[in-house]
Design a protein around this nucleic acid. Structure first.
Lengths: 208, 208
DNA sequence: AATTCCAGAGAACAGTTGTTAACTGGATGA
DNA sequence: TCATCCAGTTAACAACTGTTCTCTGGAATT
């Protein structure tokens, strides 16, 4: 089991988490490349210089945010993709998973969508690495499916990337519709479901 | 025909274009939300206050950049989608079009990818509007195809959005691979081609 | 030729930024 | 108990930001 942290370490982690939380809030209305160090410390209620005890720079903080936002998501993805049932059920399950995640962690989703192509190279790189991991994991799960018989590794990875990108697009659309009326949210959900359905149909006839 | 501009108007347009060009260059390494007004005027070689003669704010400049980057692209998209030939030819043609555009205007492509989910609301809105126009245009072209028989308007638009999003993903991947060796660029092109192929297969069996 | 217009310059404003150095005081380990 | 450590503080730095007001000189209009 894990060692109990001393008062000192515990307090440090608490402050570090406060930095991450404050930054995530500030990033709802701007990009990481315009996030100032003093801005974050002000929001946390701490002296500017305290920042350096935790991060080298705001880019460094951004990389930490990537891990927080995506790091714990891998088991969720694995189990969702490998769920038994016909493809229609799995599509519904996947869309519901995304919708639930967007509801629960909108700021995280916004951050990833924003910084995936954002102006801070190390953060882009960290997101790219995490998404590649997702694609690899989805590919592994897809390979277990009997429908994957006769598929090359390359084609499986191609399909996995298609699914992962589609997840992100859907998450981003649901995010924009977060404060919209329920009927608009339902429209987005239906759109995403049909797009996944079309991809799955293409998958079924790929080897024809 | 168009009226010839006076010396004054011509010079103003020239300066305005210098602002757009300088901003686009500066935005290769940061996001719009961190682009400073003085930074741009410095790059143009003009006094900070001159900025206000052309734009209200950097957000306003960003909206102008959206128009420059996407405004002239509509005819290109229309003709590419409506090209005759079997689907395989059309896919190849589309991927080549994107690759060519990324080569010719990398900064524009980067700007759109970056600011689509970026921190400046009016710019996000402008990009969203342009992409919706693209989707509508693609839908219109798709509807002309005999294969669209029996398709609902909703499903056609769903498919059109799928294609448009896929174009953007491909453009972004090609952009990242711009300075990579030719074999890596070829790998990306092949990936995009197969993804489009899978979507097109799904399209062919949608009504089964 | 005389008048109006207006893109851009210049100077000044209060506020902000990242980073440095030297410090304090409570937790930690001998 | 006492010396060490180290998260967070305080103060100061030069450099930068957006925005204002006033001015200028050449183009445009009459």
């Amino acid at each position: 089991m894990s060692h109990t942290l001393g008062i000192r370490q515990a307090q440090k982690q608490k402050t570090r988490q406060a930095f991450l939380d404050a930054a995530l809030t500030l990033l709802e209305e701007q990009s990481l490349s315009s996030l100032g160090l003093r801005e974050v410390t002000r929001a946390v209620g701490v002296a500017p210089t305290a920042f350096y005890r935790h991060f080298r720079s705001t880019a460094d903080l951004g990389v930490a945010l990537v891990d927080e936002a995506l790091g714990s998501l891998h088991p969720m993805v694995r189990t969702t993709v490998s769920t038994t049932g016909d493809s229609e059920e799995r599509i519904t399950r996947a869309v519901e998973l995304i919708a639930g995640h967007v509801d629960a962690h909108p700021a995280h989703v916004r951050f990833i969508a924003r910084e995936r192509h954002g102006g801070v190279q190390p953060v882009r790189e960290a997101i790219r690495a995490q998404l590649s991991r997702f694609a690899e994991e989805v590919k592994t799960e897809l390979a277990k499916d009997p429908e994957a018989e006769g598929w090359s590794d390359d084609d499986l990875l191609m399909l996995a990337h298609l699914y992962v990108d589609q997840m992100l697009i859907t998450a981003s659309l649901l995010l924009e519709a977060l404060e919209a009326p329920a009927e608009e949210r339902e429209r987005v959900t239906q759109l995403a479901t049909r797009q996944l359905r079309l991809i799955t149909i293409g998958r079924g006839h790929w080897l024809d």
